[in-house]
Design a protein around this nucleic acid. Structure first.
Lengths: 209, 209
DNA sequence: GAGACTAATGACACTGAGTGCCGAAGGGAA
DNA sequence: TTCCCTTCGGCACTCAGTGTCATTAGTCTC
């Protein structure tokens, strides 16, 4: 899906070369969004800044809302692999906690950049709304693993609830991270998962019968 | 916020009467969306069906996406009251479970209607995305109560994580409800909350039979 | 009842996102 | 060079949403 303009090792491609990459285009748009605000930046402005036609831009990204996301799917595949390689006797919640933390680990030099992107994604209403659609794929990864471990289908109540809980905890952690300049994202994620364990482990609850 | 065109008991209102109510307009739009699909129904078509101008429609609802929601805020206020009236020694998770179940209790005759609305809200991409913004207010109610009970601010990690978890569990329950014609929504909600308690208490999960 | 005041309506024009269509441009292969 | 393939980008169009403003339909005062 990405790097589609880099010449493949298996022979040169035929036809006209793409004039830009998804990553470049995403990066250029992000610059503009951060500088002028998401709403104040038109798609035309992004296309002009990238030196491509407006029509071409919509061939790279299906909507303006998708521009800041860049290559999210690549990260998902990594998370899938990570989960596959975990020992199968790892407790479910621990396995998922580890995987989610790993998913959000970035090289130190990328962190300021990542922060600005997440600041947009979690604060611009249009992007907050749109993000739900992207998170669905993320939840699917979590639900698939939970289903595998529980021996049930991934569209059952249990895997879906678990996936939602991990997503929610992650977003709560991100919100804290953006609010506190000096905070550590991975620690906040772990803290959020601990909240889940402690809050919902309170056993004075009587399951409704 | 609603019933603004019904004459108030305290004297007649001044100025021209609203030509329609939010509830009526929402209902009319829902009919069209269900019949023809959300994407295939233009705002103009809704306005015409409602016998009002297109411009007027946007004074009642800020966007097409808001039309199917109707009066969501009224339910939120009810949930707030419900939580306020609970004994303060009710365990936090139990209190929230009860409140959320109560929030989703509807008269039997409204259930088929509610089902169709939720079917739209949870399946039409544009509405799924937009719903995140509406759910934020819902989460705030949960977070506020959790914060109160925990003696911390509602924008802290704990209340936010708890609110996300309850929202996620509720949505997972709704998805099951829509998928199984004969399912009971309130039972599914309780089941989803039990999933949270058992999974995060690291107990054994038994797939629902 | 006439005029003042108030609030909702709706027509019009405009911006901006997203799409279908199609010819042109740029590349490799024969 | 010629053919073929792929991307590019201009154009026209649909539709959501907004600012403006005259109009309509009420109430209140004199």
């Amino acid at each position: 899906m990405d790097a589609s303009n880099a010449p493949k090792t298996s022979g040169a491609r035929i036809g006209r070369q793409p004039s830009i990459s998804h990553a470049e285009l995403s990066h250029i748009s992000l610059q503009l969004f951060i500088e002028n605000g998401f709403e104040n930046t038109t798609v035309d402005a992004v296309a002009i800044a990238a030196g491509i036609g407006r029509r071409t831009l919509f061939r790279y990204f299906p909507s303006k809302n998708d521009l800041p996301w860049g290559d999210f799917d690549a990260g998902l595949e990594q998370m899938r692999s990570f989960l596959r390689m975990l020992p199968s006797d790892t407790p479910l919640v621990e396995a998922l906690s580890l995987a989610v933390v790993e998913f959000n680990r970035f090289p130190a030099e990328e962190i300021p950049f990542h922060r600005e992107r997440m600041d947009l994604l979690l604060n611009v209403p249009a992007l907050v709304a749109h993000s739900t659609l992207r998170y669905a794929a993320w939840r699917q990864v979590v639900a698939d693993y939970a289903a595998l471990r529980l021996g049930i289908e991934s569209d059952n109540l249990e895997p879906q609830t678990i996936a939602w809980a991990f997503l929610g905890a992650s977003l709560a952690a991100y919100e804290q991270w953006l609010k506190h300049e000096d905070a550590d994202l991975l620690e906040l994620l772990e803290a959020a998962f601990v909240v889940l364990r402690t809050v919902f482990a309170s056993l004075e609850i009587h399951p409704a019968g």
